[in-house]
Amino acid sequence: MIDTLIFVFSQPFMQRALVGGIVICLCAALLGVSLVLKRYSMIGDGLSHVGFGAVVVASALNFAPVAVAIPVVVAAAFLLLRLGENSTVKADAAVALVSTGSLAIGVVASSLSSGMNQDFNSYMFGTILGLSESDVWLSIFISVPVLVMFLLFYNKIFAVTFDEAFCEATGVKAKLYNGLVAVLTALIIVLGMRLMGALLISSLVIFPSLTAMRVCATFKGVVICSGIVSVVCFLFGIVASVLFDLPTGASIVIANIIVFVIFFCVGKLVKR
């Protein structure tokens, strides 16, 4: 078994998967803390469907998928955040509308253009083991700035996540930092789609922070723990998928579920 693992992990495709996967998991986990605490978990899910729609339409029209998806998803992120503020359409309903709508557009677009089934599958379920070298560089070019921004604005992001009204009233520009989190999330979701697929990327955003919140009592603790959990689950998932020949994206999510259950039980025990 060890030999198999050593062999597999020495392959270039696996090393690319590890590098790309770890940086994106880390970013998704950190941003996820803020999103989950603001009750915006579903926005991550909605955005991944928007990303899916955008990517499929773009490739049907022979545009570069990622270059089209990033601006579209950023715009959708702002739209969903705004809808959350003024409640003519309730925020959760708005997310459902946008998400199912883009999914439908994506499916129709893919059926109109021939020979897209392979792509369709890869955007739905991810192709982490098939990352090209340029994919890896793209992940690093986007993830590292996202990480740096998150750390630079950490205190402000905490304050805005905890209490927007107080921030606005005391002169912290809450809307600016909300917008920042929205843009960073959109970037990571588009990237993460390549790895995990549209269906699974939102679990990368949501699971680690929810897991960390079971046991950590400080915001800093949650952020750090969430990052570690995310990377560890990614590694476990990918190892399991190699050993037992399972789909990688889904294995990573299942690793996250298992760790969540463990942390949930530990949290309950500690409280008692």
Partner: peptide, 15 residues
């Protein structure tokens, strides 16, 4: 919200 009391109080200085 998972945050320590100190983290919350300190965030009042951010303005």
């Amino acid at each position: 919200f998972p945050a320590s009391v100190y983290e919350v109080v300190l965030s009042g200085c951010l303005g």
